[in-house]
Amino acid sequence: METVVLVLQSLKAARGGWVSGEALASSLGLSRNAVWKAVNALRRRGYAVAASPRRGYRLAAAPDQPLPEEVFPDPVPELVGLEPGSTFHLEYFPELPSTNDHLRRLGRQGAPEGTVVVAEQQTAGRGRRGREWASPPGLGLWLSVLLRPPLPARDAPLLALMAAAAVRAAAEQVAAVDARVKWPNDVMVPQGKVCGVLAELDAELDRIRACILGVGLNVNQTASDFPPHLAGKAASLRMAAGRPVHRAELLRWVLRHLGARYRQVLVEGFEPLLEEVRAFSATLGRPVTVEEADRTWPGLAEDLAPDGALLVRPASGGAPVAVYAADVSIRPA
């Protein structure tokens, strides 16, 4: 464990109290100079560390940033899959064009399952079908997670649903909001859309070599932070909760819920996940408009198929139609 994290853990253990430099050095097996350098490194990362010649150091405040030491403050590894070494490893960047693109490069270089790339800001974030995703600094969580599931490529849409279910559960737990999954890959609150998931594959027909789950989650925006064309459509957890939401804690629980559902899928298959999505769906039982490449038609969203397709009964009558890749919007009842 790096020296900076060791010093940070010791300062946090003091719960706002003073710790002398000598005590830090002695307990951690470091030199006084190494402690001083670690304190300065923490300050550069945004931590407010007070210093007193006679009393030592005190952690006055931690930044609201998804830094690895804030997301996972305990040294116990956070599990991802079933393999013993399958744990989350978080890499933080102040700015990236796209976390998905950066993680794809890492994956092709052999990055292990559970590698997470999170950026304070994306300059070229994107959603489904190449749509732009605004990713301003300090207001949301912009991240990508690398999985290497022993599954066929056709299961990719189900993995996107899995990530959306994990975000929904974390939002409910941390922000205490009524969050729902909108098919195929969004999370909604009553005020609008707060999250989108983008699953991208490196795969053969019979197996997935790597799946990158990109998550864009609006956390602390106010209504004025969104451009006019998104008014009434985009929302944030802060808007739903009526208070700011701590991003590092939220990310911790997003990843924990994602890991739990991923392990469940590997052991039990996707049916328990589909039952969860059915129970917390923003789409099922609602009138919808389906926009396909060659036609647009209304219907009623009735269920999810075992492969994750949305079953929509056309308003014109007939049997439910399995919808896979269309844009589906909810119509007023």
Rank of each mutant, 00 (worst) to 15 (best):
A51W: 09
Y57C: 09
E95D: 05
D74M: 02
A60F: 03
P75F: 01
Y92R: 07
R55Y: 13
R54V: 05
D74W: 02
F88K: 02
S86G: 04
S98G: 07
H89S: 13
P66Y: 08
T99H: 09
P66N: 14
H89T: 14
L59V: 06
E91C: 11
P84D: 04
P75M: 00
A51E: 15
L82K: 10
T87G: 02
V49L: 11
E69A: 10
R58G: 11
A61R: 15
A50M: 11
P75K: 01
P77Q: 08
P84R: 13
L79C: 06
S86E: 13
L82D: 12
Y57H: 14
V76N: 05
V71K: 00
P68C: 07
R54Q: 15
S52M: 07
P75N: 04
D64T: 06
T87I: 02
S98L: 07
L67D: 06
R54C: 04
H89F: 02
P97D: 09
R55D: 13
P75A: 05
P68K: 00
V49R: 08
P94Y: 14
V80M: 08
P84H: 11
R54H: 12
P75G: 08
V71C: 01
F72G: 05
P97L: 04
Y92L: 06
E83A: 14
F72A: 04
Y92M: 04
E95Q: 15
Y57R: 13
Y92W: 15
L82N: 14
E69F: 06
P68L: 03
L79H: 02
S52K: 10
R58Q: 12
D64K: 07
A51T: 15
P66H: 13
L82M: 05
G85E: 15
F72Q: 02
A62K: 03
P84Y: 06
V49C: 10
P77E: 03
A60I: 07
P68E: 00
S98K: 05
S98Q: 03
Y92V: 04
A50K: 12
T87W: 01
L79V: 06
G56Q: 10
Y92A: 04
E69K: 06
S52T: 07
T99Y: 05
A50C: 09
S86W: 06
